[in-house]
Design a protein around this nucleic acid. Structure first.
Lengths: 211, 211
DNA sequence: CGAATACTTGATCCGCATCAAGTGCCGTGG
DNA sequence: CCACGGCACTTGATGCGGATCAAGTATTCG
């Protein structure tokens, strides 16, 4: 969840002033599936992924939160238990905001729930777009789509092949082979773990070809 | 979107009084992808599916709305264009609520956006649960899951094999074969188009076995 | 009663999961 | 600052689940 800059309101600052700060490392869990929310989380720097594991070993990467965004809001305000796990994709500095405080501040600010609803609406669209993608596309399209999306939203992060696979509902070796194809087409260049997009239009073509 | 009974407020009634009624038939489109929302829709009776098609002919069934629920809310309040298509799964009686009116009534009622956020939160969880399901499960689990869900949420509807396939990110013949398996296990009985669940615990086992 | 839609079954094929056996890189701790 | 342990990356071989195609039957609705 991110509050739109234009409308950024003092109540957000109020919240952040009263939070407690903590540093996490890549791989650390912030919260786990089935736990009850104790508050809201805000990212000062770093990257957090919302993932859901299955016993068959598949880990889905459902949502990604970056610096200056909140997360944990869906569960907190819906009065449920976490349905997925929040895990650091990078070393991350977090601010934790006590549940009681969050509700106080939100209830005092009439527009807060409107912004919350807007954020959830956007996340719902993205979740449904992703589910259409993974339910029909060939793997090369899915990877192309993920690369475009990641470049746009989280360009600073070094995406591992496994993270891409988890987003694409595929597996590491398959993603590596697909990226080999994309490199052959001249769409990307791979240099060690770094992925450079040479020609985004080729990626877009790949995605649209079969959609 | 559904307003919780306990909290059902007069503003909902206010809205519905000022709406215009219209009857639709199975298969009719209420709105299509890329259109701009003109208002909010309410179902008096019937069933509406939110679907997204791809040129490759796959149709994903993303969300299902039943009697006494609103739909079109995600797009209306997020100020986007529709990302999917609303299509009647049964003959349906709708109430259409003018955009301007909806915003007036919502803005006048402080709790309205809270309920909207809660509804979106629930829909987001369901969307993500579905995406985990379709990204990892064997087809028999997916069908079992869909049958449990449909029985719980929309028991009155006669679900076609194709609708189930669209929800499960699969295809009609595959679903038919999976349902044959489930019938062999004694979990369900099929009688023409009607599907009877004989032993839900078997379905649950199937879902949990491989998860 | 006829047309459209839904269901069914079997044959074929291929994309990708899976497995295995490496190599390469990198951060971290001595 | 270097060595080493743990990830991340890579590649090839194999097998299978389910998509696809096709042809036909059943059912529902107008």
């Amino acid at each position: 969840m991110e509050f739109v800059r234009d409308h950024e309101l003092e109540f957000v600052d109020t919240l952040l002033l009263s939070g407690s700060r903590k540093r996490f490392s890549r791989g650390d869990l912030i919260y786990s599936e089935t736990e009850s929310p104790k508050g809201l989380h805000y990212i000062e720097s770093g990257l957090v992924g919302l993932t859901k594991m299955s016993a068959s070993g598949n880990e889905s990467l459902l949502r990604i939160f970056r610096a200056e965004q909140f997360f944990g809001h869906r569960t907190l305000f819906s009065n449920e238990k976490y349905h997925a796990t929040a895990k650091c994709l990078e070393n991350t500095d977090l601010v934790f905001l006590e549940k009681k405080l969050v509700f106080e501040v939100f209830d005092k600010n009439p527009s807060s729930y409107f912004f919350l609803a807007r954020a959830l609406a956007k996340e719902l669209r993205r979740a449904e777009d992703r589910s259409v993608l993974i339910s029909e596309g060939h793997i090369i399209e899915r990877v192309a789509y993920a690369l475009i999306l990641f470049k746009k939203l989280h360009p600073e992060h070094i995406w591992t092949r496994t993270e891409i696979a988890n987003y694409c509902a595929s597996r590491t070796p398959t993603v590596i082979k697909a990226m080999g194809e994309l490199e052959k087409k001249g769409a990307i260049r791979q240099n060690r773990r770094y992925i450079e997009i040479l020609d985004e239009s080729i990626l877009i073509d790949v995605v649209e070809d079969l959609q």
